[in-house]
């Protein structure tokens, strides 16, 4: 164990969920490298926050199934990656009942955020062609 990544979590030797989660963190990390950086660049470099009114979002930015799908995929990846990451952090610092409570809160917040984001990206009418 002399050589270790020194900032990543060592690959779990147990297999099962922990190993799958370890791999998923890396796969979603690669996806987010593209998804999150493209999203941030669009919102801050290509466009400017001052123009991004709700009308602009629905008539321009989200007037395309591709960009809605892109942002929804980003939401899905960021919720799972962030949730699994915070799960690791929580389990590093808390034990017993407090850990259970914190993890339950985390599950709940992750689910609520995912549902809220999905509702807004899917329910607003697509004004195509306007």
């Amino acid at each position: 164990m002399a050589l270790y990544s020194r900032s990543g979590r060592p690959r779990p030797q147990s297999g099962g969920f922990e190993l799958a989660a370890w791999y998923f963190m890396r796969l979603s990390g690669v996806a987010l490298f593209a998804l999150a950086l493209v999203h941030f660049s669009l919102q801050h470099f290509v466009f400017d926050p001052s123009q991004q009114t709700s009308t602009w979002i629905f008539n321009q930015r989200w007037n395309s199934l591709f960009w809605r799908g892109f942002d929804w995929l980003l939401l899905m990846m960021v919720v799972l990656h962030g949730f699994l990451g915070l799960r690791t952090v929580t389990m590093d610092y808390l034990k017993g009942g407090r850990r259970t409570l914190a993890l339950a809160t985390l599950y709940l917040v992750g689910a609520v955020i995912f549902v809220m984001g999905t509702i807004v990206v899917m329910s607003v009418p697509l004004p195509l062609g306007k």
Binding site: T53, L86, I113
Partner: peptide, 26 residues
């Protein structure tokens, strides 16, 4: 990572308002 997660929570709430209550979002 924790900072980004906190922003994601805020950002989903604000974008939800863009659909639900556009004036508050603006």
């Amino acid at each position: 990572g924790i900072a980004i997660w906190l922003f994601v929570l805020l950002h989903v709430l604000d974008i939800y308002l863009a659909g639900g209550n556009p004036n508050v979002y603006d």
